[in-house]
């Protein structure tokens, strides 16, 4: 089974385009509009990579990241944010994000990152089982 993506962003237009582009590449993708919705999805279904926006109303991205890493430590998270702050980047990376990327990001690049994150998850899982 290949890469399964969960995309979390409150910007409907952005997420819609993202879903379309992943679907076009035949990569299963699910959208969530906010943190609690994403966490609920993760509890019910298996995902490999979460693409997470930092600035969302309600639960902020860092809290969502922390929760994801607590409940599903093997799931890899790529943070996609329009807001550059080295401080937030440091926090995100030290909380276990795979990468911290500034918007706008080229879709090809994002796909490559998602695949790399997926590869890491597989490596991690194979080690856990051995």
């Amino acid at each position: 089974m290949g890469l399964r993506v969960l995309a979390v962003d409150d910007e409907a237009d952005f997420i819609e385009t993202l879903v379309k582009r992943f679907t076009y590449r035949r990569i299963p993708v699910t959208a969530a509009a906010n943190g609690p919705e994403a966490l609920a999805r993760l509890d019910r279904e298996d995902f490999d990579v979460v693409i997470l926006d930092m600035r969302m109303p309600g639960m902020d991205g860092l809290t969502v990241l922390q929760e994801i890493k607590k409940r599903h430590p093997l799931v890899e998270v790529i943070i996609l944010t329009g807001h550059a702050s080295v401080e937030a980047g440091m926090q995100g990376m030290s909380l276990g994000a795979y990468d911290y990327v500034l918007k706008p990001v080229d879709f090809g690049e994002l796909l490559e990152k998602a695949n790399k994150a997926y590869e890491r998850k597989k490596l991690n899982e194979s080690r856990d089982h051995s």
């Binding site: 702050s85 080295v86 911290y100 500034l102 490559e112 490596l123």
Partner: peptide, 29 residues
Amino acid sequence: NFARKMEPVLQEEALEHVIEDMAILAERE
């Protein structure tokens, strides 16, 4: 975090791909 000894997960990657996102982030600031 300091005390936690998580085994590194080793991946083949171009070094530029590893560091460039961090450079972009620092660059904006």
